[in-house]
Design a protein around this nucleic acid. Structure first.
Length: 477
RNA sequence: GGCCCUAUCGUCUAUCGGUUAGGACACCGGCUUUUCAUGCCGGUAAGCGGAGUUCGACUCUCCGUAGGGUCACCA
């Protein structure tokens, strides 16, 4: 009910540590779709608090990726908004403010240990096969926080947390999940664990979409929400995306592709959206092809899946083909053109339906240009002796071709059907294979190509006549 | 190892106690096409195992099993 009264605010909060892969894109997609569906606000926030891992150019890359996909934000680092700034590195004053509040309440303290000492604790925990808990080593008395030492959260109360996730339902975890995690690092930057909570609070975020690796740390966040006396937003846990080999969660290290690689390979952004929409969600009906608008309309967090899914590109390719078929002729032409620069626009337009028939992604045109359609612009040097499908073909091919040639002047070339009508009776009489095979070969020089009537139609009467003449001459100079 | 999550055809999934367990991709076959492609029609293929609840479980509960996540001054 709060959904209907409260404005929906979602965010996508990537860290600028490299490219975006399908996992990140899907998170962004769902957050975006949910906000759009409810005419709410979608915020792009950059979690750049780890200066060591930061990769230069990541922000631009992320923005370009989202732009390509058509995922637009209402507030963000490039366009500003009422909660600016949207780079966490520019929001340090806010984190400090809340850190001071926690300090005052006695829920934060400076960490007296060195990293080496903590490492020792950790190793010990590993040796005795126990989960490492910092709070087991929490000092009795704390120094003043000077900003040089990391500031730790002091768990207010050890209790078993139970909470409701919009996807997984009721979740819970034991006190083992609670610990004194770091709020502010020794370099002055906050950790994700702290910063995202403050930002979500200040930005009025109502729904947090994120992958299921955060389930384990949710109790920590809950205890922090408690300490700050704030109501947490709705948690929306997305299922993992597994790699093709089956089981491993797909991440950058496991060969996840940069989403922009799909653009390079000639996938349509709408197809990517469609595919990712279905990888973790389902409308319940049997519709599988969605435009982004249809997806937004149908999307419902109540229908997000719990279990993970393997990413297989076959289905993506099929979805992409369906989206290609739905494109306008102009859009198709636009996409095909860069791959077939040698083909003039008039020819390309005639070829277009045959090209579209043959591809699932535009990237496949790299091969098509060199084979299937090359003969349209580059008359082949044909050796008719190669026509060996029928025993008597080499001897009689010339005769059949000359007869077809004789039919041409009276043939109407205005449609494929009219050419068919002119040649078919003759072909039926002498055996379709005997006539049409040499004809196709004379025209294209290929065993495999589009059918000869279509070739005739596309080449035009004069060119057909010329090519047949050349072949006939070659047989009998 | 502790804590947590998940479990239907090879893959993506529908099912919200009663179905011949449905659809899609992929695969195989047929038809159309002189070939290829497209298109149309058809086929193979699934409830992890074991207890329980129930008149009745894929569906609810528990125990196993398997897979995944997490236990950072990473997000």
């Amino acid at each position: 009910m709060s959904e209907s009264t409260k404005k929906i605010v979602t965010r996508f909060a990537p860290s600028p540590t490299g490219f975006m892969h399908v996992g990140g894109v899907r998170t962004a997609l769902y957050a975006w779709a949910w906000a759009k569906k409810h005419k709410g606000t979608f915020i792009l926030r950059i979690e750049d608090t780890d200066k060591v891992r930061e990769v230069e150019g990541s922000l631009e890359h992320i923005i370009e990726s989202l732009r390509w996909l058509g995922i637009t934000w209402d507030e963000g680092p490039d366009i500003g908004g009422e909660h600016a700034p949207y780079l966490q590195s520019q929001r340090l004053d806010r984190y400090e403010k809340y850190a001071r509040i926690l300090l005052e309440k006695g829920f934060a303290y400076p960490d007296p240990f060195s990293e080496e000492e903590i490492e020792k604790f950790r190793n010990h925990a590993k040796e005795v096969k126990k989960a490492f808990l910092y709070r087991d080593y929490r000092p009795e008395e704390f120094d003043e926080w000077d900003g040089k030492k990391p500031l730790r959260f002091k768990v207010p109360v050890l209790k078993e947390y139970t909470w409701t996730d919009a996807v997984r339902g009721e979740l819970s975890a034991g006190v083992e999940a609670l610990d004194d995690f770091i709020l502010i690092k020794s370099d002055g930057y906050p950790t994700y664990n702290f910063a995202h909570i403050i930002d979500d609070l200040e930005m009025g975020v109502t729904h947090i979409m994120r992958a299921d690796e955060f389930i384990a740390s949710t109790p920590k966040y809950l205890s922090l929400y408690d300490a700050l006396e704030i109501t947490p937003p709705v948690f929306v846990t997305l299922p993992p995306i597994l790699g093709e080999e089956g089981t491993k969660k797909l991440g950058k290290r496991d060969g996840a592709k940069d989403i922009l690689d799909y653009r390079r390979d000639g996938f349509l952004s709408d197809a990517i959206i469609n595919f990712l929409a279905l990888l973790g969600w389902n409308a319940g009906g049997e519709q599988e092809i969605f435009t982004p608008e249809e997806f937004i309309k149908n999307f419902d967090i109540a229908r997000i899946h719990k279990s993970g899914a393997e990413l297989h590109e076959e289905k993506l390719r099929w979805i992409n083909k369906e989206h290609i078929k739905k494109q306008s002729e102009e859009a198709q032409l636009e996409s095909v053109r860069p791959y077939m620069k040698a083909y003039g626009d008039v020819l390309l337009k005639k070829l277009l339906p045959h090209i579209i028939d043959r591809i699932s992604i535009y990237g496949e045109l790299v091969n098509i240009e060199q084979s299937d359609f090359r003969f349209f612009i580059d008359p082949p040097d044909i050796d008719i002796e190669q026509v060996v499908w029928k025993d008597d073909l080499p001897q009689t091919s010339k005769m059949y071709l000359e007869e077809v040639q004789r039919l041409l002047p009276t043939t109407d070339f205005s449609s494929i059907e009219s050419i068919k009508q002119a040649i078919m009776p003759y072909a039926e009489e002498h055996g379709k294979g005997n006539v049409l095979w040499p004809l196709r070969y004379a025209l294209s020089g290929q065993e495999k190509s589009v059918d000869p009537f279509t070739i005739c139609y596309i080449l035009g009467k004069d060119e057909v006549y010329n090519r047949i003449t050349r072949v006939c001459k070659k047989i009998d100079p």
